[in-house]
């Protein structure tokens, strides 16, 4: 399955055939049956957090899991794909804290809720999981596009209570132990964008400095200074600042106690919503 982030590339120029990511590991990948409902996101143009004042980014229609991948689902995945069990995983794909709190290779932590989001998994692991069920990770732009919504509108970024609420949630500890979907969904029917965990995106590592003046806004120094868009009317950027600060501090093999993921999928269907 192609993990194309862009529109169809000319396959003739592609010298190497795309191979399933999960195929890399055993060649006989067991596809896990998963019934996660997915929300249709029609996409559109949006102003990214890190872009210049006038640039808009286009997000193509896509499908997004309505909620994060759960402990129970990941357990099924490692049972079918032993290469991803904690005592088998290659160190190049996950650091030493990978599933460290699990009672065994195939047992969740004691007292863990099977419907709570899976955490302590690396980007490589998240990607392998997504591939095993014919999905992929959402891109940063896709994720942030959906994150703009509140319960009643697709873009709530200018509402002060929207951003206040997100920051409130971000300040609470131990939310990762709560089950998915127990809070109201947003405008797209997507749950838990802010109230449980941080989430991996496919291109989490695409925020950086560039020497190219066309993209001068990517200056990563701005993420560390108090400058940037922290004016009184731009409070929305506080929550986004936190997410971006986290993303730029991550490496693909990291596993973190409050970092999980959800899956996405391309769609050829264009619905008029």
């Amino acid at each position: 399955m192609s993990i194309g982030l862009m529109s169809c590339s000319n396959q003739e120029n592609n010298p190497v055939e795309e191979k399933s990511f999960a195929d890399h590991f055993s060649g006989t990948v067991q596809n896990t049956r998963v019934n996660t409902a997915m929300a249709y996101i029609p996409g559109g143009e949006y102003k990214p957090f890190y872009g210049s004042d006038t640039s808009l980014v286009k997000v193509e229609p896509f499908l997004l899991d309505e909620r994060p991948v759960t402990n129970g689902e990941y357990l099924d995945f490692v049972k079918s794909n032993p290469a991803w069990q904690k005592s088998n995983v290659k160190r190049i794909f996950a650091d030493t804290a990978y599933l460290h709190n699990w009672s065994s290779d195939t047992t969740l932590p004691e007292g863990a809720n099977a419907d709570a989001p899976i955490c302590n998994i690396s980007w490589f692991a998240a990607k392998a999981y997504a591939e095993s069920i014919g999905k992929r990770l959402p891109t940063l732009d896709e994720w942030e596009f959906v994150a703009m919504a509140d319960a009643t509108s697709p873009n709530a970024r200018s509402k002060s209570e929207y951003s206040d609420r997100i920051i409130d949630l971000y300040l609470q500890k131990n939310r990762q132990f709560n089950p998915v979907k127990h809070s109201p969904p947003n405008y797209w029917g997507v749950y838990n964008m802010f109230d449980l965990i941080w989430e991996w995106t496919d291109d989490f590592n695409s925020i950086l400095t560039t020497g190219d003046s066309r993209s001068g806004q990517y200056e990563d120094k701005s993420l560390f200074c108090a400058g940037g868009a922290t004016s009184a009317t731009d409070i929305l950027n506080y929550a986004a600042f936190m997410r971006f600060a986290l993303r730029t501090s991550l490496k693909a093999d990291f596993t973190v106690a409050n970092l999980g993921f959800r899956c996405a999928r391309d769609t050829v269907v264009h619905l008029n919503k």
Binding site: A97, Q172, K221, L246, V256, L259
Partner: peptide, 27 residues
């Protein structure tokens, strides 16, 4: 929950150390 880092004003160098020390929880 959040990543943290450090900028020491005694340091001569980018960000006073901030860029090099951004640590996610547990790291």
């Amino acid at each position: 929950v959040l990543p943290h880092n450090i900028d020491l004003h005694a340091v001569t160098g980018p960000g006073g150390g901030a860029a090099a020390t951004s640590s996610v929880p547990g790291k």
